[in-house]
Amino acid sequence: MTREKILEKTKAVIYECVPELEGVEIDENSVVNTDMGMDSMNFILVICKLEALFDVKIPERQWNKLSTLGEVVDAFEKRLKKK
């Protein structure tokens, strides 16, 4: 899967899980925290949905290091390449 595709799917999941973001443009530099309406429970939800969607797992101890949307995409891209 291409990086663009992963980014597109990740954004779709974020918009689905955080309805407050409707109409707000997010890009790879967007910080995925409360500033964009995503508390830690929402973040768990997003990661779990992405794991199910891409059929890969990101170890929980790496979750803290995922600050931006770009880093979330990087993490899934790396795992998908290993698959």
């Binding site: 925290n33 409360t34 508390d39 830690s40 803290n64 290091k65 600050s67």
Partner: peptide, 11 residues
């Protein structure tokens, strides 16, 4: 921030 659990990171 990377060394902090998520809920303790600066928003």
């Amino acid at each position: 921030m990377d060394a902090q659990p998520r809920g303790r990171q600066i928003g």
